[in-house]
Amino acid sequence: MFDTVIHDVYYLSFAMILVLVLGGGIIAVTSKSLIYCFFGLVSSLLGVAGLYYNLGSPLVAVMQIMIYIGAVCVAIAFGISLTRKTEDEGVKPPDIKAAIPVVLVTAMLGSTLKGLEGRHIVASAHKADESLIGWMLLKEYLLPFEIISILLTVAVIGAVTIALINRRIG
């Protein structure tokens, strides 16, 4: 009896993760106040981390929380507090351009499902040995790893240079 109850708890928590992801996303794009958008984004990111954990990778889930919520959301919070102007927050009323996401994503989804027909699922979500990620980053994926380091350095230097206040002396 306890066995079915524990599975129900698992499915219930998975449903809550889905609500976090999609609910947070919808709040993030349709709310008038920018602060609500920000917290919708945070909850969506937390939900996506939960989905990564369900796909069998605790490492990517924790990295998602650390990098996105720890760095990107903090930077966005700084950006919001530095550029706050309550007149131009808010969302434009939907007009004919709202058809673009719908049509585009339906086309993408249709072609994906068509391409998935007939392919059989090789593996299910299991926890692979994640210490291999460290090895692969230094052996086979060394070039993308180094390029991403250079990219991050250049991006940070560029962002600081753009936003720098030049104090003139004299």
Binding site: C37, V48, A98
Partner: peptide, 15 residues
């Protein structure tokens, strides 16, 4: 795909 659509909608319509 739903997240992609939601993000795209936000990119078109946020002020």
């Amino acid at each position: 795909h739903a997240l992609f659509a939601i993000g795209l909608y936000g990119m078109l319509f946020r002020r």
